[in-house]
Simulated assay, not measured.
Amino acid sequence: MSWAIHSHSADSSDFKAQSSVGRNVQDANMLLEAGILQQKNHDLEGADRTYRRVLELDPQNKYAWYNLGVIAHGDGRAVDARVAYDKALKVDPAFPPALFNEALLLEPSDPDRAAGLLKRVIADNPKAGTAYLHLGRIWEQKNRDDKAAAEFRRAIATDPSLRSQVPKEFR
């Protein structure tokens, strides 16, 4: 029966540790909302600081990692953006926004890897028109016009507003 005996202080410290983690996540979520508002108001430096504070409280917050990636991506810091997107994907390997944005970063330099990421986005959301559009562009660059045409058709079928972004020869 000794296995069932716990000291009061051990139970109390376990509760405090769990309570502290819960509080950190709750505080992180509140800060995340503030960071999103800063980002919407174009205070990117403030949003960057806020997201980093979120990650101090909750290092597994995929949204903070993702938004840091978006900020870096917008600033032209591709390496920093990839690092942030990769960290978001370590937390959630199927996180569509991070998959898509990383694919956009990789499209010029590693089109095969970008295509793989785009296919994962499409597998999660078959109505992801912009993913089909970018996949079509990758096939077009590889001179695989048959595959490019199929992806462009899917893009337009899922989102007719993308028609103007499809190369003329594939419309």
Rank of each mutant, 00 (worst) to 15 (best):
M1G: 15
S9Y: 07
D14E: 12
D14S: 14
F15N: 15
K16V: 08
R23P: 12
R23A: 15
R23N: 14
Q26G: 11
D27V: 01
M30A: 15
K40T: 11
K40Q: 13
H42Q: 14
D43P: 14
A47R: 04
A47F: 05
D48R: 13
D48V: 09
D48A: 14
R49V: 12
R49A: 14
R49T: 10
R53A: 13
R53L: 12
D58S: 11
Q60K: 11
Y66T: 06
L68E: 02
G69T: 05
V70D: 08
V70I: 13
I71D: 05
G74M: 07
R77A: 13
D80H: 05
D80T: 03
D86A: 06
A88K: 09
A88I: 10
L89G: 09
P96K: 00
P97L: 00
A98W: 00
F100R: 05
F100N: 04
N101F: 03
A103W: 01
A103L: 08
A103F: 01
A103R: 07
L106E: 02
E107M: 14
R113S: 14
L117K: 06
K119N: 11
R120E: 02
V121E: 01
I122H: 01
N125L: 02
P126L: 03
P126S: 02
K127S: 12
G129N: 06
G129P: 09
A131Q: 04
Y132G: 08
L133Y: 00
R137S: 05
R137G: 06
I138T: 07
Q141K: 15
D145P: 10
F152S: 05
R153V: 10
A155L: 04
I156K: 09
I156V: 13
A157D: 06
S161C: 08
S161L: 10
E169A: 10
E169K: 15
